[in-house]
């Protein structure tokens, strides 16, 4: 596992890439407005091969907006978006896919009624024969699909079954296997573990690690700091559309990350409010001070501490 290991305790600081290769994908001061809603503003993010960049944040923090820019569903309205060091602007997800950027969405990943193997190759079907009789190469697609899924440790009884009959985690895993197979260099996962149970989440996290071992750059979006900390090499926390924290794994503890996610000051005021409600024993609640232990100091928006 590669971590960049700079020991400074700045809250927001540029990611130092591992020596030798530049970032696959980079956002510089990128932002996105939906009409008069500024969903994202001044965001810096880098994705390197063989590393997992986690993007965390509360509901509406702008996580989905961020990855929609990278995956070509939306276009950024400010800042720069670079792939392999060159500025780009994707009009369709197809263009992003062609540059090796594949996205796996929680609900957009698959077409539920279609068989597993058709889903696997959807949009990139294998064909054979000259044009007027060009047809799907079904045997080859089924073989490949079966092999790829087994390589990722996914065992299914029947590739003909509609993918909607699989569990959420299995579907997610198929989508990841698909992205890896189609030569993705950058894999984006939008809250892949959000709707999953503990075991299923574990399965997905395993595939994320597997994808990293294969040398892919991974952007892992999640609400869950525990999941993020298990596989992440770098953590970016978004709050209200801006970067609140950007830190390498070596520079932050799980407790500090959790505290950043929750927002230290908000937690304190919540505790205060709860204290007014009878029946809630605030003494049993963790102290925000202890939650912050070991990590970089609070800074930026929403912190009451100096």
């Amino acid at each position: 596992m590669t971590t960049n290991g700079t020991g400074t305790h700045d809250t927001v600081r540029p990611d130092t890439p591992p020596a030798g290769d530049g970032p696959l994908v980079e956002l510089r001061g990128a932002g996105k407005s939906y009409g008069n809603v500024r969903a994202l503003h001044g965001v810096d993010l880098t994705v390197h091969a063989g590393r997992v960049t986690c993007v965390l944040g509360d509901n509406g923090a702008g996580k989905s907006t961020l990855i929609k820019i990278v995956s070509g569903l939306h276009q950024h309205t400010e800042g720069d978006f670079l792939v392999d060091g060159a500025p780009v602007r994707f009009g369709t997800p197809r263009e992003a896919l062609d540059r090796g950027i594949a996205t796996v969405y929680q609900d957009l990943a698959t077409v539920p009624l279609m068989p597993v193997w058709r889903n696997f190759f959807l949009g990139s079907e294998l064909t054979r024969g000259p044009w007027p009789v060009r047809r799907l190469d079904i045997a080859r697609m089924k073989d490949t699909c079966d092999r790829e899924l087994r390589d990722m440790g996914i065992v299914l009884d029947d590739l003909e079954q509609p993918i909607g009959t699989l569990s959420g985690g299995q579907r997610q895993s198929v989508a990841i296997a698909r992205a890896v197979h189609f030569g993705a260099r950058v894999l984006i996962l939008d809250e892949p573990t959000a709707a999953l149970g503990v075991r299923q989440s574990g399965v997905v996290l395993k595939y994320i690690a597997a994808a990293r071992e294969r040398g892919l750059g991974v952007i892992f979006i999640t609400h869950n700091p525990h999941h993020a900390y298990m596989v992440g090499d770098h953590f970016t926390v978004l709050r209200l559309g801006t970067v609140e924290l950007s830190a390498a794994r070596s520079a932050i503890t799980l407790e500090a990350l959790t505290n950043h996610m929750a927002g230290g000051a908000e937690l304190a005021s919540l505790k205060h409010e709860l204290a007014q409600v009878r029946g809630v024993d605030v003494d049993e609640l963790p102290d925000t001070g202890t939650l912050d232990g070991g990590g970089p100091g609070e800074g930026g928006a929403g912190s009451g501490k100096g």
Partner: peptide
Amino acid sequence: GSKESARAVG
């Protein structure tokens, strides 16, 4: 079956 999924995979 799912317009958005279809679009997302190209």
